Amino acid sequence: MVGVVGIVIIFVMVFGGYVLAGGKMGIILKALPFEMIMIGGAAIGAFVLSNDGAGIKHTVKDVSKVFKGPKWKSDDYRDLLCLLFELIRVARANPVALEEHIENPTESSIFTKYPKIMTDNEAIALICDTMRSASMNYDDPHQVEEVLEKRIEANFHHSMHSTHALHSIADGLPALGIVAAVLGVIKTMASIDQPPEILGKMIGGALVGTFLGVFLAYGLVGPLAGRLKSVIEEDGHFYQLIREVLVANLHRHAPNICIEVGRQNTPGHNRPAFSDLEEALKATKDAA
């Protein structure tokens, strides 16, 4: 919703100011379809040329995040901490019993309590792979932390592909606008024998191309890329929390301490209150 509001403000301020200053929308509306075909079509073509099929689908899908916002909310961080708490308690009490949960999480009585987390394959794989490795005696905290850091960094780099693609489009749009404007000038020069009022409209139409390229780059596509980057970075804290808790577990801290380490590494606006988390963990113990 915030993204939609931002777009509305951009259009109202730019075109509203233009009209209030005495500008006429007629010449812009007349040239807009043709300029959009040239500039927008060239931008889409360049985007397709510079990305493979997976990258194109990834970028198109990720644009919706600009309007939806971060995937993980405060309740999800609390649920993640509860999930990790249950798994750590099982691992400490009966390592053999842990296998049925980490080997088949879709059938696990613990994992299935948290359906939203179950929709994220990477989060589930990160938890299960790390705990499985620990059960196989690969439990050096420093080595595991390094492995997890590299894995999270690789996933983050992959997730950022969409923002790089959008930034590339934004960087190219002003130049494409100039291309469209130059073509408009060429068209105008071919009609140099026309009266000044006609030439003026033709030159104005050509300048719409320059305006449109700059407007799309800095008013829409660039901000979309920036917002998408911030959303991906915020969602990345979810996986970092998994790393912090699982590494704390390998240091053999008490389960409650491991969870508190995770809570304190949760972003402030999503960090569950200590008392709320204690109640959630107590409810988890009672249910178990």
Rank of each mutant, 00 (worst) to 15 (best):
M1F: 06
V2M: 09
V2T: 08
I10G: 04
F11L: 15
V12K: 11
V14T: 12
V14H: 00
Y18N: 01
L20N: 00
G22N: 03
G22F: 04
G26W: 01
G26T: 10
I28F: 11
L32S: 00
I37P: 00
I39L: 11
G40L: 03
I44W: 07
F47M: 12
S50W: 02
D52H: 05
I56A: 05
V60I: 14
V63M: 09
V63P: 00
V66S: 03
F67H: 04
Y77P: 02
L80W: 03
L83N: 01
L84I: 04
E100W: 00
E100Y: 00
H101S: 11
H101D: 13
E103S: 15
N104E: 09
D120C: 06
A125H: 11
C128A: 07
P141T: 10
P141R: 08
E153Y: 13
A154N: 10
H158K: 15
S162C: 09
A170D: 08
D171L: 09
P174D: 01
G177K: 06
I178M: 13
V179K: 02
V182Y: 00
G184L: 06
T188C: 08
M189C: 09
I192K: 01
G200H: 02
K201D: 14
M202T: 12
I203K: 06
A206G: 06
L212V: 12
G219L: 10
L220Q: 08
G226E: 14
R227D: 05
I232L: 15
E233K: 13
G236Y: 09
H237V: 05
R243E: 15
L250I: 14
L250N: 09
R252N: 15
A254H: 15
A254R: 15
P255E: 10
I257G: 10
C258R: 11
I259Y: 07
V261C: 07
R263H: 05
G268T: 07
A273C: 01
L277T: 02
L277E: 02
A280W: 01
L281Y: 04
L281G: 01
K282I: 04
T284D: 06
